[in-house]
C-alpha cells in the first residue's frame, strides 16, 4: 500500500527520441519536494524526473517539456540527492545509465503546466539532434587529444589553486593552535606540539605495542595448569591437522568418489 501511495504522486508519460519511435521509455515525474531546498533546485519550480533514458541530454529534455514553458536549467544525477562533485583535474567520463533529472522552470506556473501535460514532444525536435553512436565516439576520441599547451595550462592553473588551498589550510591549522576562549588548544600535525599521525596503521602499531608490553609482564610455564594447557594446545593443533586431512578425503570422495574408471 505504501508504495502505491508513493507512485500516486508520479505522473507517467512516454518520452520519445524522435517522431518515429515505436516503443519509447516511460518517464515518471513529480514536483521536487524535499525539506531543504538548495538554490539550484528552487522549490515550486523544480520538476523531479526518474527513469530518464541513458542517452537523453539537456537540450532533449528542454525540448520534451517545451510546451510547458521555458526550462531554466537541467541537472542530471545517477541517484536522487546525489552530491555534485567538485571540479576535478581528471575528468571522469560519466558512465551511461538510467538517470534522474531535475528540471528547473522559469516560473511556478510553468511547472504546474508541466505536471498537467498529456504528451511530451520528442527530444529530437527544434533542430536538435542527440549525438549518439559513431558520431559521439569519434567526437569523444578527438576531444581526448589535447594540445600540449592546453594541457600544460590546465596543469598550471590546477596546481596554483591547489597550492593556494593547501596554504590556506595550513594557515587555518596554525590558527587552531592558538588558545581559544576557554583555554583549549587543538593539536594538529603542523603545529609545535608533538603529536602522532592519526591513521589506522599508527593506531594498530600502538595497540600492538601495548599488547606486547602486557605479554612481557605475564609469566609462562609457571603454574601447572599453564604447562598442561600448552601440551593440550599442541595436541589440539595436531588433531586439527588430522581433521583437515580427513575432511580433504571426504571432499575428494564426494567429487570423484574414488572411481578411477
Amino acid at each position: 500500500m505504501k508504495s502505491n501511495k508513493r507512485t500516486h504522486d508520479f505522473r507517467a508519460l512516454e518520452l520519445k527520441i524522435s517522431e518515429q519511435s515505436i516503443s519509447p521509455h516511460t518517464i515518471y515525474f513529480k514536483e521536487h519536494s524535499v525539506r531543504e531546498h538548495s538554490s539550484d533546485k528552487p522549490s515550486g519550480r523544480t520538476l523531479f524526473i526518474v527513469n530518464v533514458p541513458p542517452y537523453a541530454d539537456e537540450k532533449g529534455l528542454k525540448n520534451a517539456f517545451s510546451e510547458a514553458g521555458t526550462v531554466n536549467s537541467v541537472i542530471f544525477a545517477t541517484k536522487p540527492n546525489a552530491e555534485i562533485q567538485s571540479e576535478k583535474f581528471t575528468k571522469e567520463t560519466c558512465k551511461l545509465s538510467f538517470k534522474v533529472c531535475y528540471l528547473v522552470f522559469k516560473k511556478v506556473s510553468e511547472l504546474n503546466k508541466a505536471l498537467e501535460l498529456t504528451e511530451l514532444r520528442p527530444m529530437n525536435s527544434n533542430g536538435h539532434e542527440i549525438i549518439v553512436g559513431m558520431k559521439k565516439w569519434i567526437q569523444e576520441h578527438n576531444a581526448a587529444v589535447e594540445l600540449p599547451q592546453v594541457l600544460k595550462e590546465r596543469i598550471e592553473t590546477f596546481m596554483k589553486t591547489h597550492d593556494n588551498k593547501t596554504q590556506s589550510e595550513q594557515k587555518q591549522e596554525k590558527q587552531l593552535e592558538q588558545q581559544d576562549d576557554e583555554g583549549w588548544i587543538t593539536v594538529t600535525k603542523g603545529g609545535k606540539v608533538q603529536s602522532f599521525a592519526r591513521t589506522e596503521k599508527v593506531e594498530s602499531k600502538i595497540m600492538a605495542k601495548e599488547e606486547s608490553k602486557k605479554k612481557r609482564k605475564e609469566l609462562k610455564n609457571f603454574y601447572t595448569f599453564q604447562i598442561r594447557e600448552t601440551k593440550m594446545k599442541h595436541i589440539v593443533s595436531l588433531r586439527q591437522k588430522f581433521e583437515e586431512d580427513k575432511k580433504k578425503i571426504v571432499q575428494i570422495k564426494q567429487s570423484r568418489r574414488f572411481k578411477p574408471f
Binding site: I17, S21, I22, S23, P24, H25, T26, P53, P54, Y55, L96, V132, G133, M134, K135
Partner: peptide, 18 residues
C-alpha cells in the same frame, strides 16, 4: 521492464554502427 524500449535503445545508441 520495458524490453521493447530497451531493444529500440540498442538501435539508438549504436547509431551508424548497427
Amino acid at each position: 521492464v520495458n524490453k521493447e524500449a530497451i531493444v529500440e535503445d540498442f538501435q539508438i545508441l549504436g547509431d551508424g554502427l548497427v
